[in-house]
Amino acid sequence: MHPTDTATPPSAGHAEIRIVAATPEAARAVAQTIRRSFAGTEQRSYPVPEGGTRLHLTVDTETAAESALSWLATSRSSVLTGPHVDEV
């Protein structure tokens, strides 16, 4: 677990997003795309020990663009999906 990760979930109506990319530019491009759909907090970035960048941001899922809200309303968790091997 990364020292800045937290086991405490975000408050209701919010989601924590972690982006890991080879370059800071790639991580910022993904964050920018997410911000087009969700209001969010200031991003925080950290170097990845093996190289690359880890970017963290919190988004407000209750203040989402219409397209994101409709996706959230229709999406469902799948039994087949779970954490990646490097996630808790």
Results as ranks from 00 to 15, higher is better:
1 M>D: 09
2 H>Y: 08
2 H>K: 07
2 H>T: 02
3 P>V: 10
4 T>S: 12
4 T>Y: 05
4 T>I: 03
5 D>R: 08
5 D>V: 01
6 T>L: 10
6 T>R: 12
6 T>W: 00
7 A>V: 00
8 T>M: 07
9 P>C: 00
9 P>W: 01
9 P>D: 02
10 P>M: 03
10 P>N: 08
10 P>V: 02
10 P>R: 06
11 S>L: 10
11 S>E: 14
12 A>G: 00
12 A>V: 04
12 A>T: 05
12 A>C: 00
13 G>D: 06
13 G>T: 04
14 H>R: 14
14 H>P: 00
15 A>K: 04
16 E>C: 02
17 I>T: 01
17 I>H: 00
18 R>I: 04
18 R>Q: 03
18 R>T: 12
19 I>R: 06
20 V>P: 00
21 A>V: 02
21 A>R: 09
22 A>C: 02
22 A>R: 13
23 T>L: 04
23 T>V: 04
23 T>D: 10
23 T>A: 09
25 E>H: 09
26 A>K: 09
26 A>D: 13
27 A>M: 07
27 A>C: 06
28 R>T: 04
28 R>D: 13
28 R>K: 09
28 R>Q: 13
29 A>W: 01
31 A>V: 03
32 Q>T: 15
32 Q>M: 04
32 Q>F: 08
33 T>H: 12
33 T>A: 15
33 T>Q: 14
34 I>A: 02
34 I>C: 06
34 I>M: 10
36 R>Q: 14
36 R>C: 03
36 R>L: 12
37 S>F: 13
38 F>N: 06
38 F>L: 03
39 A>L: 14
40 G>K: 01
40 G>N: 07
40 G>H: 05
40 G>A: 15
41 T>G: 13
41 T>D: 15
42 E>L: 09
43 Q>T: 15
43 Q>N: 09
44 R>H: 15
45 S>M: 12
46 Y>M: 11
47 P>F: 07
47 P>D: 15
47 P>S: 14
48 V>Y: 12
48 V>W: 13
48 V>M: 07
49 P>Q: 14
49 P>H: 13
50 E>T: 15
51 G>I: 07
52 G>H: 06
53 T>N: 09
53 T>W: 13
53 T>L: 06
53 T>M: 12
55 L>I: 05
56 H>C: 04
56 H>Q: 12
56 H>W: 12
56 H>R: 13
56 H>I: 03
57 L>Q: 09
57 L>N: 08
57 L>A: 09
58 T>L: 11
59 V>Q: 02
62 E>C: 01
63 T>E: 09
63 T>K: 14
64 A>D: 06
66 E>H: 05
67 S>F: 01
67 S>M: 07
68 A>G: 10
69 L>W: 02
69 L>F: 04
69 L>D: 11
71 W>P: 00
71 W>E: 08
71 W>K: 02
71 W>G: 00
72 L>F: 05
72 L>H: 05
73 A>G: 07
73 A>F: 01
73 A>M: 02
73 A>H: 08
74 T>F: 05
74 T>N: 12
75 S>M: 03
75 S>G: 04
77 S>G: 10
78 S>F: 05
79 V>G: 06
80 L>G: 13
81 T>P: 00
82 G>T: 10
83 P>Q: 06
83 P>A: 11
83 P>E: 05
83 P>R: 14
84 H>C: 03
84 H>I: 01
85 V>W: 11
86 D>P: 02
87 E>W: 07
87 E>V: 05
88 V>A: 12
88 V>R: 10
